[in-house]
């Protein structure tokens, strides 16, 4: 018996305490993965996530020798009762040159709806070189019943963009914003309702 006591290096409460610390730390780590993931995507430009608004102090130099084709895509999250499309399907631009194009959105429901556009660029590695100076995706957009709105985007393709990339696709998906009031949710507009007709 006593032999065992002497052998004992750390007592149980200490071990439990230390292990519980690890448990708490790993629980926190799970949550830390969320911002870490965003930082990682920002830094590497992976995942096609575009950055926030870019402001240029001086106008960037334009690379006249090169043309990059930008394709515009628009989609709606499943239950969003809007129409949404780009005014033109693509444009060819010189890197460094600010360009503005328009998307058009129309609310075809009988309620005022706040929407949220989430941009994505592919190939993912081009995302870091696709800089938006103006975009309807920076803020929430509200459309009254039946209202139509022109939504401009101004962007510059960084001249540092790798030579291997000559085409970039910019896509926006409009989601119903969580800021909409509850009766919208009851009005078969949120995705939850999809479940109920099972």
């Amino acid at each position: 018996m006593s032999v065992q006591t002497k052998k004992q290096t750390t007592d149980n409460p200490k071990i439990i305490g230390r292990l519980l610390l690890v448990v708490v730390a790993m629980f926190g780590f799970g949550f830390a993965l969320v911002p870490l993931y965003d930082v990682f995507c920002d830094v590497t430009g992976l995942n096609g996530k575009t950055g926030d608004k870019v402001n240029f102090e001086t106008a960037p130099t334009v690379d006249e020798s090169r043309l990059v084709k930008i394709t515009f895509l628009a989609s709606l999250n499943e239950s969003m009762p809007w129409e949404f499309k780009p005014q033109q399907n693509f444009i060819e631009v010189h890197p460094g040159k600010p360009t503005t194009i328009n998307y058009i959105a129309k609310n075809i429901s009988s309620k005022s709806i706040v929407g949220n556009a989430v941009p994505s660029v592919s190939p993912g590695l081009a995302a870091a070189y696709f800089q938006k100076t103006e975009c309807f995706c920076f803020t929430q957009q509200e459309l009254k019943a039946g209202e139509e709105k022109i939504m401009p985007v101004t962007f510059i393709v960084d001249s540092e963009l790798s030579d291997e990339i000559n085409e970039i696709a910019l896509s926006y998906t409009f989601f119903i914003s969580k800021q909409n009031n509850e009766d919208l949710a009851d009005n078969n507009l949120t995705a939850k309702s999809i479940n109920t007709f099972k």
Binding site: M26, F29, G30, V34, N116, K178
Partner: peptide
């Protein structure tokens, strides 16, 4: 604990208006 974390995020996404996994938010 990471599993507990991920289901907790689901719980708050579903019931408390967070948007861990929701592109709209």
């Amino acid at each position: 604990p990471v599993l507990a974390g991920v289901v907790t995020m689901m719980l708050t996404d579903r019931n408390f208006g967070t948007s861990f996994f929701d592109a709209a938010g």
